[in-house]
Design a protein around this nucleic acid. Structure first.
Lengths: 132, 132
DNA sequence: CAAGTAGTTTAGAACGATTTTAAAGTAAAA
DNA sequence: TTTTACTTTAAAATCGTTCTAAACTACTTG
């Protein structure tokens, strides 16, 4: 399926701008990126796009499941008085966090930590949303 | 141990402002909060504190391990073209994310999802840092 | 205790990421 | 076509956070 069809299938009009972004992102090679990364990439290919359009576009793509947004990376720092290793439910409807006791989660298998690095804590985030 | 001693032990001068915050946070009841939450609470007790001081203070408390900061909540949204459930290493020195295949992690036990809610995805974040 | 000094607080400015605004442009439907 | 709804844009606005530089305060040393 080509990118135009992917956009159509997702319910998005395949505009010129969305196609540029789809061509960069949906080629099958996975990557992490920010809105600014993407703008730089677009600029260095001789094209240009308003940063507002890039944000609009990424939000639409995310809402359609074409891409993901890593973690609940809100722009507000949330602090926690619980300094023991523990985990969280994230209520995606409200942004509220609920503690999960460490021993309510059992990680049987973890990947190897890359060479030269130390494990500095494991956080499990279970995203939940209201049943409809 | 009282809060003054806790601050001393953490290597922090027990200033008036730090004591106000310690009295709110270190009473033993765990909670999540933002800098703004805390300022509102301070204000409504008739006291006041500069937002810069609150941020300074929370950063010091966090660096001393008196409180935690939830997730790597940077203020930049990171997107991911990998829409399958998977996990990440977070390089805390650089902010870089590295994918972990879903089947490299095995969650033996998960807590019950709260009544009326649906599990909308589980993300495991393994924080790593350079060995020194 | 006095004086020095190193760390802390503050208001306000600055910053960086993101969102809003409102006007012009474009895709799809009728 | 013409219409209608959606999209893009530059620029302004907003929001959380950090910086600046001056005033202040806790601790140290004499």
């Amino acid at each position: 399926m080509n990118n135009k069809e992917k956009l159509r299938k997702a319910g998005l009009r395949p505009t010129k701008q969305r196609m540029i972004i789809a061509d960069i992102l949906l080629g099958g090679i996975n990557r992490h990126f920010t809105a600014e990364n993407l703008q730089n990439e677009i600029n260095s290919s001789g094209k240009s796009m308003s940063i507002a359009t890039i944000y609009n576009c990424l939000k639409k793509f995310r809402n359609c499941g074409l891409i993901k947004q890593v973690e609940s990376s809100k722009d507000t720092a949330i602090f926690d008085t619980n300094i023991n290793q523990h985990h969280h439910f994230l209520n995606e409807d409200t942004g509220e966090l609920i503690d999960i006791e460490n021993d309510a989660v059992n990680l049987r298998k973890l990947p190897e930590i890359p060479q030269g690095y130390l494990n500095n804590g494991v956080e499990v985030l279970i995203k939940i949303k209201k049943q409809i």
